[in-house]
């Protein structure tokens, strides 16, 4: 067994929250630059230029890229040879989020009760996704995701006999419907399979893949490319004002499912895609 002090988890989560919110990842910046080179609309180009410039200012002044610093989704791969000492894992993660959002001057956007809507004032609790894996390391990924794009997401229970075309139409319709509201150019995470609750989790996992990479299976990679082209052909463009760049990436993750089911979830992400990882 390897002993890890809980405080190390807290410190890592804190650092990742600040890092994700102030330093736009190189894969996203590269995708925005590529989009700028190809964008046909003058308004679209102007918006993409502003987004690239915004990322530079945020990094230089340690400012949040977006004022919506998001809900913190924390993905933990916990090595089963690790023994956490001096604290509880959930508390350690939430303490890290709390400190990160306070010390990093990030906006607190979490309400304790969905109906009473009282702000918790420290952006906790985080949404924690825990997976036990072999080994003696702890891998932590923090995705800070805004509410506007999340609101445009959807899940649909297809028939097992539904065609790929029907699924494609649902994905494209969801992205087009999201349109200007989801801060395009978007990233579209798609979860296919699992159950009613698992499909959205797969879709969220799909968002974690680096922008610009392709699915390991060539037929799915081809499908992702087709979906990307179809959504970009909608003409929605940056911020929905018209243009050729509506999505930066379409990522699919599949999962096993029941013989009666074919759930499909579409998780919409804005261009300010903020995800950082670390290993303890």
């Amino acid at each position: 067994m390897r002993e890890v002090v809980a405080k190390r988890v807290t410190d890592t989560v804190k650092k990742l929250c600040i890092e994700a919110n102030t330093n736009l990842s190189d894969d996203v910046v590269e995708a925005l630059n590529k989009a700028l080179a190809k964008e046909e609309s003058p308004n679209g180009r102007e918006i993409l230029r502003q987004l690239i410039n915004n990322a530079k200012i945020a990094w230089r002044d340690k400012l949040a890229i977006c004022q919506d610093c998001g809900l913190a989704f924390v993905f933990i791969e916990l090595g089963q040879e690790v023994q956490l000492i001096g604290g509880d894992l959930t508390e350690a993660v939430n303490e890290g989020v709390s400190r990160g959002y306070n010390e990093g001057y990030l906006r607190k956007s979490v309400t304790a009760d969905p109906l009473k809507r009282v702000n918790t004032n420290d952006n906790t609790p985080a949404v924690i996704n825990l997976k036990l894996v072999p080994g003696e390391e702890i891998k932590i990924g923090v995705l800070t995701k805004g509410g506007g794009a999340e609101n445009c997401s959807a899940v649909k229970m297809f028939k097992p006999t539904s065609s790929q075309q029907e699924i494609s139409d649902f994905i494209v319709e969801t992205a087009v419907q999201a349109g200007p509201n989801a801060c395009p150019p978007m990233i579209v995470g798609i979860g296919i399979g699992g159950s009613f609750d698992q499909a959205p989790a797969l879709a969220k996992k799909a968002l974690l893949r680096r922008v610009g990479t392709h699915h390991s299976s060539s037929d799915i990679a081809k499908w992702e490319k087709e979906l990307l082209e179809r959504i970009n052909a909608s003409g929605i463009g940056p911020m929905g004002l018209g243009g050729s760049t509506t999505v930066l990436a379409v990522n699919i993750v599949k999962g096993p499912c029941h013989i009666s089911s074919l759930p499909v979830a579409v998780n919409i992400e804005c261009h300010a895609h903020r995800y950082k990882e670390a290993v303890i």
């Binding site: 410039n53 915004n54 801060c183």
Partner: peptide
């Protein structure tokens, strides 16, 4: 532009 918050 949404997400141009630091620049704004």
């Amino acid at each position: 532009p949404g997400g141009a918050a630091a620049a704004l």
